[in-house]
Amino acid sequence: MNKMIKHSFLVMLAALAMSGCSKDKEIVEPEVPVKEEVVKVDKDITAMTTKIMEKTAVIGTFVSDTTIKMAEGLFRTSIVFKRPDKLPVSMFIIEADLKNAKLELQTISPYNDLIYGVQPISEMAKDNEIAGTKIMAAINGSVYTAAGDPTGILCKWHRR
């Protein structure tokens, strides 16, 4: 058995040596260019972003922003920037004219129920939609435990 292991080892060593003895071609690794991060600055700054930049120091380097009209009196602004410590941020702001009778704020809850739990906000919006209405924006504005119990006040259907 020892002879067989020794013989196998010698055969493997010889095969390795023979493959290494042929004319070696120098292997040239292709150069991978180092991609420098280029931040293209958007020159058109929306009114919402201007307001944030004037009143806070949260935006270090402005990158871009876009405001879209979601419905009459309802706008969504998306802002991309770097904080003063260079960390990238994407921020979304919903602006609603609550004087518009067609718009209202409502509390939604997991599975449209008063039982606490967790559910993705997109599914929660679908489950809480009332016939004849359309939820245009849903924002997770609560802090809750891992089990889904709110840590603050939750008021829905005039109940806490």
Rank of each mutant, 00 (worst) to 15 (best):
K82D: 04
I121Y: 03
M18L: 15
P150I: 11
D97Y: 07
G148I: 10
T66L: 12
K43A: 13
G148W: 04
N140F: 06
A147C: 01
V80F: 09
K23G: 02
K25S: 06
T49Q: 09
K51S: 13
T66E: 15
P88L: 01
I153S: 11
K86M: 07
T107L: 07
I139K: 08
N2F: 04
D42T: 08
V28C: 00
M12C: 10
I153T: 13
Y144A: 10
E29K: 02
S142L: 12
N2D: 02
A131S: 10
I153W: 05
S78M: 08
G73P: 02
V63I: 14
K6I: 11
L13F: 09
K35Y: 14
I115G: 06
L98F: 09
S78G: 07
F75H: 15
Q106M: 15
K134E: 11
R76S: 13
C155V: 14
I27C: 00
D65W: 13
W157Q: 14
T49G: 06
V58T: 05
T49F: 06
L74Y: 13
Q119M: 10
D24W: 04
K99Y: 04
A96V: 10
P88A: 08
M53K: 13
L105A: 06
L87V: 12
N140G: 12
L103I: 10
L103Y: 11
I93F: 09
M4F: 11
V143K: 11
T50G: 11
D113W: 08
V11R: 06
I135C: 09
N128A: 02
D24R: 09
P150H: 10
G73V: 09
T49N: 12
D127A: 14
D65C: 04
V38W: 04
V89L: 01
S78K: 15
S122C: 02
T77G: 00
N100G: 07
G141P: 07
S22H: 03
M91T: 01
K25W: 01
K134F: 03
A96E: 09
S22D: 02
W157C: 06
L105G: 04
A101W: 00
